[in-house]
Each structure stands twice: as structure tokens, then as C-alpha cells.
């Protein structure tokens, strides 16, 4: 039973993966944006942003861009699912004797693979502009796993959005809009020290900040003090906790939405 459910998920993962090279634009734009961010931020803000506690801005920046980029997995997943929905594919899948989670598992897993590839490309770009890691393999690996799982969790949020809005156009805006404030009001691109007091508090508790701080910690990159709060003191532990919360909340919500979904 479980085995065949996993197989359903794999069949649909394969389907989504097959699509990626057939729509090269998607892959291109999904990769170009983070690359642009790496170069723009590194060279435009590079010298202008002082890092409290010292350190190189590019080394500070890269983990932030990693986290920001994988957050946009939400939009990728939302659009993909909304497209399937509007084409009637979701209806067809729902009429098949497959696991209720299979369509979402397939889509989110394929988007995870896509994002791992994008992380790989970004790592190369990062190394080109002078980003380095300064810890052992175990810490570096933990950082990558943490970011990859964040990507997966964000995809599940996207799954819920995609199943709720139904039209790909709406899904694309609904999947992205809120990510700008969420990723920018954080320590992803600039240290929170320069923000006004109230904004700084928001940024401090923003999960995006926890993930950025955790990644910086694990990579051994400059990591300005976020604050004397729980996420400020234990970013890695807090990030893991966030992951658990995101999965526990959004996976069941998205699956439930799928079960109830109707295309019209």
C-alpha cells in the first residue's frame, strides 16, 4: 500500500522532471534571477554595506541569496499546479486510483530537484565572486540540507496556493507577491542593525532571517548578531523547528485542498 503510494509519487515526479527540459525558458529564468542577484548585490552593494563585526559582504550575501531563491519555489509549485488544474489534468488525476498526495508529492519533489540544481549553479557563481566556506564538510552539508528542505517546505506552501487560486496567472502573483516583503524584511541582504527599531524586531523573528543566520553559521560566513532572542541565539535549532512547523501545517492543508479541489 505504502509502496504503491510512493510509486505514484515517483511516477508523477518523473512526469514533472520530464517537462523541465521541454520548457527551457522556465529553467533559464529560474536560474538567471539568482545569478543576477549574486552579481548585482555583490558588486552594487558590495562595498557600501558594512558588516557589524566585520567580514566580507559577498560572504555575507551568498547564504542570503540561497535562502531567498529557494523561497521562490512557492511560486514555481503554485504556477505548475494551477496550470495542471486549469488544463483539467488535476481532474483526470483525481479520477485515478492513486494516492491523494501523489500529485502534490510529484510536483513538490520535482521542484526540489530543480532547486537543488539552481543551488548548484549559485554555488558556482558564488565561488566565482569570491564566496568561500570556512567550516567542515558536516556543517556545510547541514547548511545545504537545511536550505533544500526549506525549498521543499516552500513548495508545499505553493501547492496550497496553486490548488486554491486555480488560474496560473493568479498563482504566479499570489505565489510571489508576499515573498518580497518576507525575504527583504530580513537579514538576507543587509544586516538588521541598520533597520529602524520596530522593523528590526520583525526581521529578527522572521523565519527567513533564522535560515540565513543558520546558513551563515554553518558555512562559517560573517554572521552579524541578529538579536538577543531565541532565533537570534540559536538560528540553526530554530530553523529546524520552523521546518517541522511548515511541513506539519502545510502538507496536510495542501492535501486536503487537493481532495476538495474542483477545476470549475
Amino acid at each position: 500500500m505504502i509502496a504503491s503510494q510512493i510509486q505514484d509519487g515517483l511516477v508523477l515526479t518523473k512526469r514533472s522532471l520530464l517537462r523541465i527540459p521541454r520548457v527551457p525558458e522556465t529553467l533559464m529564468f529560474a536560474t538567471i534571477q539568482p545569478i543576477l542577484f549574486v552579481f548585482l548585490f555583490a558588486y552594487v552593494f558590495g562595498g557600501a554595506v558594512p558588516i557589524p563585526g566585520g567580514g566580507d559582504y559577498k560572504e555575507f550575501l551568498l547564504p542570503g541569496i540561497f535562502v531567498q531563491t529557494v523561497s521562490f519555489a512557492t511560486a514555481t509549485t503554485a504556477v505548475g499546479l494551477a496550470e495542471d488544474m486549469s488544463k483539467g489534468l488535476v481532474d483526470r488525476f483525481r479520477s485515478l486510483p492513486i494516492a491523494r498526495s501523489a500529485v502534490l508529492v510529484g510536483r513538490t519533489t520535482a521542484d526540489l530537484v530543480l532547486n537543488v540544481f539552481i543551488m548548484f549553479v549559485m554555488t558556482i557563481c558564488g565561488l566565482l565572486v569570491g564566496w568561500r566556506v570556512h567550516t567542515d564538510a558536516a556543517h556545510v552539508a547541514e547548511a545545504y540540507v537545511l536550505i533544500a528542505l526549506l525549498s521543499l517546505a516552500m513548495s508545499w506552501i505553493g501547492a496550497l496556493i496553486g490548488m486554491s487560486v486555480r488560474s496560473p496567472e493568479v498563482a504566479s502573483s499570489a505565489g510571489i507577491i508576499w515573498l518580497f516583503p518576507v525575504t527583504f524584511v530580513s537579514n538576507a541582504f543587509v544586516p538588521t542593525q541598520h533597520m529602524p527599531g520596530w522593523l528590526r524586531v520583525i526581521a529578527e523573528w522572521n523565519p527567513v532571517s533564522s535560515f540565513c543566520a543558520a546558513a551563515r553559521d554553518l558555512f562559517g560566513n560573517p554572521n552579524p548578531f541578529l538579536g538577543d532572542s531565541l532565533p537570534g541565539r540559536h538560528p540553526v535549532a530554530v530553523s529546524w523547528a520552523w521546518l517541522v512547523v511548515l511541513f506539519v501545517v502545510f502538507v496536510p492543508l495542501a492535501v486536503r485542498r487537493y481532495r476538495l479541489a474542483t477545476s470549475r
Binding site: S4, R15, L18
Partner: peptide, 24 residues
């Protein structure tokens, strides 16, 4: 269904194999 619901980005064969696999 009323409007063809197959994956446009897959080939005809890939579509049918996928549905066969989903029927286990």
C-alpha cells in the same frame, strides 16, 4: 473529460505510460 486532459509537454507515449503506471 470534455476537454482533452493530457500533459502537453510529454509525448503521446510518455502520457500513456504514465497513466498506465498510475493504474499500477
Amino acid at each position: 473529460g470534455q476537454s482533452a486532459a493530457v500533459d502537453e509537454r510529454l509525448t503521446g507515449r510518455e502520457n500513456l505510460v504514465m497513466f498506465g503506471r498510475l493504474y499500477r
